[in-house]
Design a protein around this nucleic acid. Structure first.
Lengths: 406, 406
DNA sequence: GGCGTTTTGTTGTATGGCTGAACTATTGCG
DNA sequence: CGCAATAGTTCAGCCATACAACAAAACGCC
């Protein structure tokens, strides 16, 4: 278990390396895997051939490999209504290869395992309060939890492809270092060794660290969002993930999407970052609560309660946040040319009260507004989206480089 | 002339199509071409083999194809200082395959031809005043100019790979339609047919339309910029190009980089776009001139004159623009995670007076500022950068898909 | 119920492009 | 002048795909 492929640098399926014979294999395996995994309804080998442009002969050998490798399963052939030999439906293999999502956030930590069908195999979340916590302590706890989960998965005969650790802060994708996580009070540390995560057979489990909002953004891809969108996650801080063609837009060191400190009003209140009038001072969770007349450590439920009872102050607070958010998102859309915005984090449940203000301001400020239809919607991935997004991302790589598994 | 390849949809070198034997050829041709074109000093066949990981045998046949196709030239073998058979240096072929850049801007139009070495083969620019002009008229004039240039190139025995038309406005990349160009007074038209451009042998010349600032951004790649940067071009309007890994970041319909209407101050002056306090109201060319005490149709030279003589008002005007620009760029950098900003258009010459303010404000507002070194520099591509950038972009595609030319 | 039709999946054979090793070409050096 | 070193070429072998023929398993029609 805890397989070899993820440790190797990466197959040259589309890398800049020299293309050899086996490169063809890799690419076509990927092509076939994508066809099977992306199809809304199970395809047969012949369908795959038609979809990919490969011949049925080639598709047959490739599919056989994927079945052997445990990435694809064959369903019992179902007699169609038309003439001809019945086709064998191909589907993603369940409970075979799985991905692990891990997360530490301000008020919980958890682990979740997904299989290639997208189903949840195990999910364990523990509530807690990790404001100004000890990294070694918290990550050690998560590591223990993760080890249990990995063992359980292993006993079930599944193979773990890898793991993603989501953290609410600035993560350097190259060095796997957490630069700073203000709301945890953590800074400048390497989280992976602190997990101490090993497979039951003592093998290494490859863990990649990433920003929480970005992984949550990827979780949306399980739904019916377009392949390019902007995900904005509101909490104490405000993070964002930019998804283009189903993949995160990568920056030099992974430090993009820092929407929380976009200028809303240079004459506004001073922000913790040192500047004035940042978005966080208008649409951050604590600021919304405060301006709704609640204590900053109040729960989202309390705010929703007020909103549902048409409380004046709460309504005004959320409207104020909506205007600021709309202004920042308009900048975002002008710069990136994306037309769909998904609201995550606390914004998900506030969406009914935020939506109108956000759309109004965006309509005013987005230059291309007359030509495109801007869409703002609530996130659909449910709670602990980053856990699912992380696991999903691991599995996306499996499908993208299936050659390592056959 | 005016070759066939660009009309075909596109070779499947990295497209999602099925990988066949000849796909290997295409990819490795591309690999070898890139190696030869990107090398700072001429490589031999053996060097290319070492750089790409292909065997010398394979490289030899591939290079022979590229030489036959006129993309690569062999220099006379120069006896090295060390032992062994002297190597044959390979270089991009000059005056063989060429790209055409076209542009209509507010006060000029022009055409420029570059060859694969990056050298200018022909360049013709005509001054004019195209504020509120007739599109058919102006594009017809440009078409005539272009036809002359194409004929000249053809008579010189060169082959034209294609053309890019740069326009200062919102261009839909899919439909090749110009949505709106405020400073020309144009809207909703198809520019390419109005050019009426045909090769001397009556063949079609494939023309792709693009935004002027984006093509100017690509021209910077000829210099020593990093492969990812942000290009901001100041003029009456303010445009931007986002370059990631040497390529423009593509949005759904090509409408990104609209930095001119980013929020600087919601309490600021009303903008022509309908919103308040847009960047253009602080750092647009006309606003800078006005606040420097010059008429809005004054030339950049007059402003520079004032600045050089340490005029108070002019200095303050540029500082004000610099602060606003810094604020907008900080948002940009926070969102995209790029650390290099190139100042183009009128900002190029204003850079010495802008730079400090821009960097100061960015240092305050960029969240990752403590961890990265932000760089702000003046554009280096010279005048009419979009002409060079457009021609360059045509040739980049030739190098990226050399299989069509061998 | 047999038989043609239709569609799926498999089994050869042919082909193109890369590798690897041997070979030729051309220089420097002792 | 012969040897070592480096560049480039030639040729057999291999691998993954295409193409075509074939086997399998249904339907339907008389």
């Amino acid at each position: 278990m805890t397989a070899e492929p993820s440790t190797t640098p990466r197959p040259s399926a589309q890398g800049p390396g020299a293309a050899r014979q086996h490169t063809l294999r890799e690419r076509n395996l990927q092509l076939v895997a994508r066809a099977v995994f992306d199809a809304p309804t199970p395809l047969s080998r012949a369908d795959v051939a038609a979809a990919t442009g490969l011949t049925r002969a080639t598709v047959s050998t490739l599919v056989d490999r994927l079945v052997e490798g445990g990435l694809v399963s064959e369903l019992p052939p179902v007699a169609a209504q038309r003439a001809g030999r019945p086709a064998v439906p191909l589907v993603p293999a369940g409970r075979s290869v799985v991905g692990l999502g891990l997360e530490v956030n301000v008020d919980y930590l958890g682990a979740r395992v997904l299989d290639l069908t997208g189903e949840v195999v195990v999910s364990r979340v523990t509530a807690g309060s990790f404001h100004d916590s000890d990294p070694a302590d918290v990550l050690g706890t998560l590591g223990t939890l993760a080890r249990d989960v990995v063992a359980e998965v292993h006993d079930g005969g599944m193979r773990l492809a890898g793991a993603r650790l989501a953290l609410p802060g600035l993560v350097d994708a190259r060095t796997a270092e957490l630069e700073v996580a203000p709301n945890l009070g953590w800074s400048s540390l390497e989280p992976v060794p602190l997990l101490g995560l090993r497979g039951p057979d003592g093998s290494e489990v490859p863990v990649v660290v990433a920003n929480e909002a970005k992984l949550a953004a990827l979780a949306e891809l399980a739904g019916d969002v377009p392949s390019s969108f902007l995900y904005v996650s509101g909490d104490v801080g405000i993070g964002a993930g930019i998804v283009v063609d189903g993949r995160l837009l990568a920056a030099e060191r992974g430090w993009n999407g820092e929407v929380g400190h976009v200028v809303v009003d240079p004459a506004g209140p001073r922000c913790s970052c040192g500047a004035y009038g940042c978005l966080e001072q208008y649409a951050g969770k604590e600021e919304i609560l405060r301006s709704a007349g609640l204590p900053v450590d109040a729960s989202l439920a309390e705010l929703l309660e007020l909103l549902r009872s048409h409380d004046r102050g709460a309504g005004a607070a959320v409207q104020r946040a909506g205007r600021a958010l709309g202004s920042a998102l308009a900048d975002f859309v002008n710069l990136l040319g994306v037309s769909t915005v998904v609201l995550g984090g606390v914004y998900t449940e506030l969406e009914p009260w935020l939506r109108d203000e956000v759309l109004t301001v965006m309509g005013e400020r987005v230059l291309a507004a007359p030509f495109v239809s801007l869409e703002v919607r609530a996130a659909q991935a449910g709670q602990y989206a980053a856990l699912s997004g992380g696991a999903r991302e691991v599995l996306r790589e499996v499908v993208a480089y299936p050659a390592a598994w056959v």
